[in-house]
Design a protein around this nucleic acid. Structure first.
Lengths: 142, 142
DNA sequence: CTACGAGTTTGAGTGCGCTCTAAGTCAAGA
DNA sequence: TCTTGACTTAGAGCGCACTCAAACTCGTAG
């Protein structure tokens, strides 16, 4: 698979794929006789996993650490696991924080909704007063 | 309240507070006779809210939009509400995405845990073989 | 043969959100 | 009076994660 094809399939740009290779996030890709990168589709699995790490806010320097452990192969599993576990906890904490913020947001939005509601009622009252002018009892006061 | 005090209370640095004022995220603060900023503690509420927006990933340009609507006062409530509602949905979507990633992470970590377990068992088998050498029936094969 | 399109490299540029520097002002305490 | 330290400004610098530019090389279709 050429870099253009991989870009399409992975959702990254060719630029980004080369950048990732440069910094060591993607392994050095085999080149064909005219020195174009030629990928094995299995790279997609790794890119997808990197995407998860990215989505969950892991900085590139940590992904790099994980990638290096992975390249070193067996014997690094415990460290890799520890890295992922630490990350998992930070993601969980962040999710909790986001949920707390969502509550605040809901409250704030609820406040605007109330204001809107009171304004509608006020408008309705005015309309009522125009129909049954001064002195007439408001039908809204039930 | 002076900027240093506000920094302590808000968790922002004085630098960041000045930066936020410069870009319009914080209102222009009143200065005392020697042109130092003097804050009303009520600013803390606004800073805290900005913090929530930041935590939930709202870019500064959007906070700025919200801040401008707020400065314009009444008549902008519907727009402010709409802005927050859009943001809320994007945060919800992001939380869902994070939760999905957490599942993947759990699976991956589970994989490492399994490998570790198998290695422990293998070590145990070796130890067993050392105690009851060649020919002896392994007690682990139950 | 030549033109095109997709690839190559190195290195520079971009947008975001701060973060810091330099040079100066001011008020209060020793 | 002098020193200290918290403040002021405009503007430069930084770390991150890309993103793009320039100049070049290939393989293939017309």
């Amino acid at each position: 698979m050429k870099i253009g094809e991989l870009a399409k399939r992975s959702g990254l740009t060719a630029h980004t794929i080369r950048y990732y290779e440069r910094i060591g996030l993607l392994p050095y890709a085999d080149r064909d006789r005219s020195s174009r990168r030629d990928y094995d589709p299995s790279i997609l699995v790794w890119i997808e996993f990197l995407g998860r790490l990215k989505t969950t806010g892991m900085p590139i320097r940590d992904m790099l650490l994980y990638a290096e452990l992975r390249d070193q192969g067996s014997g690094t599993e415990a460290e890799r696991r520890a890295l992922l576990e630490r990350h998992r906890e930070s993601v969980r904490a962040h999710v909790d924080e986001l949920n707390a913020c969502l509550l605040v947001l809901d409250t704030k939005i609820g406040g605007y909704a109330e204001t809107e509601q009171r304004m509608k009622e006020y408008d309705a009252t005015l309309a009522e007063r125009r129909r049954k002018p001064v002195g007439a009892r408001s039908s809204r006061a039930r």
